[in-house]
Design a protein around this nucleic acid. Structure first.
Lengths: 350, 350
DNA sequence: TTCTATAGCGTTAACGATAACGCAATATTA
DNA sequence: TAATATTGCGTTATCGTTAACGCTATAGAA
């Protein structure tokens, strides 16, 4: 800025006013300054800028408890914390307001706490859209959605998430490859396990899966098994009862990380069961072995750590740096199987 | 630091000396200061630090020309430039020294230029290991390898790349799923196209593919077709001649982005050819349609942009921030197909 | 004893950007 | 015409950290 000022023959104060369009300068000097800026290819020193900007920025994160959804949210939190550790040294602060995704009061409580905190922006997982929509419509503080979107709430600054229906379609493709294209016998069927919780991701994934199977393997028969609780023992009992009355399916699809509950059940039953094609979602720390052994043939994942990380960075970019941010970020849809799972664990793909 | 100084009853100069272990202080005060630092949980303001640290850091990047390997290196360069744009505002500079990956003199020339420049660290793609190994053994400037490793050159600060053999194994798995597990007829065979250039990635990928096919489909027969030039027209002629003498294969595997040359050939020949399972490597801008249409069934990719980006960031972390960096970063092995390719293009997965 | 060395500390000018403040000169209004 | 407002600019303190420099008190050497 000093160089520019000297080149134009004015003071750095004026240059600053022109750069930030704070008025108190003539159009003539402005043009000259802008030209000189380009000629000297001036780039602001963000250190000096950040140093002067003493204001502490506080952000809030409203997501389900770490342990819920089989540890899925722990991964999101890890990404958030990673971003936080980078931003705190810039003099910022990030606070997490966790809630129980199966409880309206907990969800509303966490959101209210976050809103009444002095956070300047929120990263929210609207797992319970109906609970929070009306609250968010009234607030003025900017927020970004993660994981789930509420598309008609156009107040949101951005959404980071997944194409759930498309991922269901991809699951269908993988399943059909695993099963092969021989004509099925009459008693053949594919088992679709519907996990508990009515969230629109689960719904869309299953819908996408059904769609693909209808189109590509119209002769295949889908059988649905509804689960009521997100609990390993419960799943084992459920499946045990189911297989008393039903034959072994040609394939099993589970729309979330409960695929690992299914895997542990199959492993208990032995080789005849583990060889059944099994497709599901998410890499859960400590559960990789089910994929490594091949009990789970494919899982799809959309990098929860990365979603958390990017959510915070986008919030910062939007609120602090006032950059235009993309309204919708769709995470890459990763296909994980025995041969590549080790390249995904431990590597935080930011 | 001021707060710490006041709390302990000394000046910030002493606090600074203690933090940086520059001597001229008593052990007693040092202990007190370190304790107070923790109590007040002091985190250095990196803006102030960066502002004071006026030294300009320069890094060099030695990679093949943008257009080579079907535009692969353009993607690496994009990641490098993305990282560069983040770092230049911190007062750094990044210079690219491109070379012709099929020319010894070009390769050596680029490396020499980079070494004799005032770069403090280099990011090098050692595509031609024999050309540069002896030069690098003599240098004292730190460097990171990208894409290809020279494992016995333990002078390197780190390596960012891929598990090429494992990716070949994965290709084999996908191929076997596509073909299905029916017993092949005697004239059935799988075509392995060996792209030009003898680099160890290509070799390992093919080796991994062969290994998997040998183990899982021992009854399958592999037929090799060697290509001499990285040119679309050349590939078309090569394939045309090949198919005059040979029947349509049950599957085609190509160990790099020349898969798109094969795809365009198959598309010219019509449906009977495009329906042949085709597995290859890399997403090349402008070539996505071959995957979208399903002519190419699967490609594997290891995020070249991300490799470039992370390479620069690691160089900076290592040289400037003096952080311990991981000696070996293996990139996630992504499986790309018709149903998920759109989630990978345009999204820079850093 | 006097001189020198050094341990241990304080002081201060940068780094570049920011924005409050001040001050002319000119324009607008009463 | 006088009073006030606005335009267009310069000046300067500040952010937190760094490191050169300077100072004092004591230890050791002459």
């Amino acid at each position: 800025m000093k160089d520019i000022a000297e080149a134009v023959g004015i003071s750095i104060g004026t240059v600053d006013r022109i750069i930030h369009k704070r008025g108190r300068y003539s159009e003539k000097t402005a043009k000259l300054v802008l030209k000189t800026m380009k000629d000297l290819n001036y780039t602001p020193n963000i250190h000096a800028r950040g140093l002067k900007q003493t204001k502490k920025h506080i952000f809030g994160v409203v997501i389900p408890y770490r342990g819920q959804d089989g540890g899925y949210w722990r991964l999101v939190e890890e990404g958030v914390l990673k971003a936080a550790s980078e931003l705190v040294s810039f003099g910022n602060d990030i606070r997490i307001f966790p809630f129980d995704r199966y409880s309206t009061s907990s969800c509303i409580g966490a959101l209210s706490d976050a809103l009444s905190s002095d956070a300047e922006g929120l990263l929210i997982a609207p797992c319970r859209p109906d609970d929070i929509k009306s609250i968010l419509e009234k607030t003025s503080i900017p927020f970004i959605f993660i994981d789930t979107d509420i598309p008609d709430l156009n107040q949101r600054s951005a959404y980071i998430g997944q194409e759930s229906r498309q991922s269901g379609i991809l699951s269908g493709k993988l399943m059909s490859l695993l099963i092969g294209d021989r004509t099925p016998a009459t008693e053949d069927y594919i088992l679709v396990v519907e996990p508990p919780g009515s969230n629109y991701h689960l719904f869309n994934r299953i819908e996408g899966f059904r769609y693909y199977m209808d189109v590509v393997m119209p002769e295949s028969r889908l059988e649905t098994l509804k689960a009521e609780f997100d609990d390993e023992d419960y799943f084992h009992t459920l499946l045990k009862d189911f297989f008393i009355q039903n034959s072994i399916p040609s394939g099993i699809f589970s729309a979330n990380s409960s695929v690992y509950y299914i895997a542990s059940f199959l492993e208990k039953k032995g080789r005849k069961y583990t060889s059944v094609p099994l497709v599901g979602y998410d890499i859960i720390p400590g559960r990789e072995s089910a994929v490594e052994k091949g009990t789970v043939d494919f899982v799809l994942t959309q990098q929860p750590e990365s979603q958390g990380y990017r959510g915070i960075i986008m919030l910062y970019d939007s609120v602090v740096l006032k950059r235009e941010i993309c309204k919708k970020i769709i995470m890459p849809l990763n296909i994980i199987t025995r041969e590549n799972i080790h390249t995904f664990t431990g590597y935080m793909n930011l």
